[in-house]
């Protein structure tokens, strides 16, 4: 019983997250401006991290947690660098 509940909930939430990533990807391609693209890039890595956490629940392994933590760390650094680039056109001043 609990296996069925869990399996369907994980599948549904993975579907939601992939749909969210598709929406973000649409906006990333459409633009219209660079700041929209950076915003969507930022949201995309958050969604990817959440997807990894749901994969962790599906397989019952805590290994995915560490991958999610690494994605959160690296994604933040890159989107801050991109936002900084939009501000002045240079990453390092």
């Amino acid at each position: 019983m609990s296996g069925i509940i869990l399996a369907s909930a994980v599948t549904l939430s993975q579907f939601f997250l992939v749909a969210a990533m598709a929406c973000m990807l649409y906006r990333l391609v459409r633009g219209p401006r660079a700041q929209d693209r950076v915003l969507c890039f930022d949201a995309l890595y958050i969604d990817g991290m959440l997807l990894l956490l749901t994969v962790g629940i599906r397989t019952g392994s805590t290994l995915y947690f560490e991958a999610a933590l690494a994605i959160a760390l690296l994604g933040f650094v890159s989107s801050v660098a991109l936002a900084k680039f939009l501000m002045r056109g240079e990453v390092i001043e």
Partner: peptide, 11 residues
């Protein structure tokens, strides 16, 4: 995941 999806629809 539902809230994340609504946010993405908003974008």
């Amino acid at each position: 995941s539902g809230l994340t999806l609504i946010g993405a629809i908003g974008a």
